[in-house]
Amino acid sequence: MPNRNSRLRVALIAAAMGLSALAAGCATKPDPADEAAVQAYQEANDPLEPMNRYFFEVNQFLDEVLLKPFAGWYHVALPDPAEDGVRNFLRNLKSPVILANDMFQGEWSRAGTTVARFFINSTIGVGGLVDVASMMDMNYHEEDFGQTLAVYGAGEGPYLHLPILGSGNPRDYSGRLVDYALDPLTWVGYAYNVSEINTARAGLEALDTRARNLEAIDELKRGSVDFYATVRSLYRQHRDDLIRNGESEQQASQEMITDEMIPEDGGTSVDLKAAQSDDQITVAE
């Protein structure tokens, strides 16, 4: 990435300013007497909200000036099949980390799929550029150490939005570090003094993901009355879905029978089922 250094510098400045934002204090806790506010505060699970919002704005700015324009050019310049080739290649590179986490979670059948995909796509699929395996009904799936931690019962912790890195939480950020260490390419980069390949790969991943979501993100931003809160919610729901490997959470939804939706008159006229809607944000832990 040609702008790596300037990005880094901006990130450092942003980090310094963010730390002072952090020092300036966390989110104001709601008045304990105000039940609705307390509940909203807990549901948001975002005690560092002022700092997170600050970094969110920084990232929005970086996105507008750097990532989005690059992604736009990339999207225009590359025909769709080439774009898919890039994604397939990047996904294939992730196979060792996915496999390790499949095994950590005891998902042996998924581990088998990961191995088969890797061999099929790396050979018949021309080094990973063509996803031949998915044509044979072996579809791609994601796994990472953040999910592994969740499967072992680790809580997500409060929401954390960091410069460049974006949405996360302590569990998922720790997971990313472990995945980085698990990845053979990390060590290839160090051993042969070509750690640029990892930077290039991260940049390309960001570019690919952004290019695929140009319109979607714009529309979401336009339609939203609080884009930060929307992104925070979507991040959690998406992680939750990945952790459950896309299975629906019957038990979780049954645990969600709460009385929060019952109005003070005892709910005589109210359909209580609304209170049980699948709110997977709060049931994650």
């Binding site: 909203a40 549901e43 009355v225 809160a229 929307t230 925070r232 729901q237 998406h238 997977q280 944000i281």
Partner: peptide, 22 residues
């Protein structure tokens, strides 16, 4: 894909309300 329309807007609206003093 596990993303709930209702839950997402609920979080968004709660945030707007709490930032406007309830």
């Amino acid at each position: 894909e596990g993303l709930s329309l209702a839950a997402t807007h609920r979080q968004e609206f709660a945030s707007v309300i709490s930032r406007n003093g309830g």
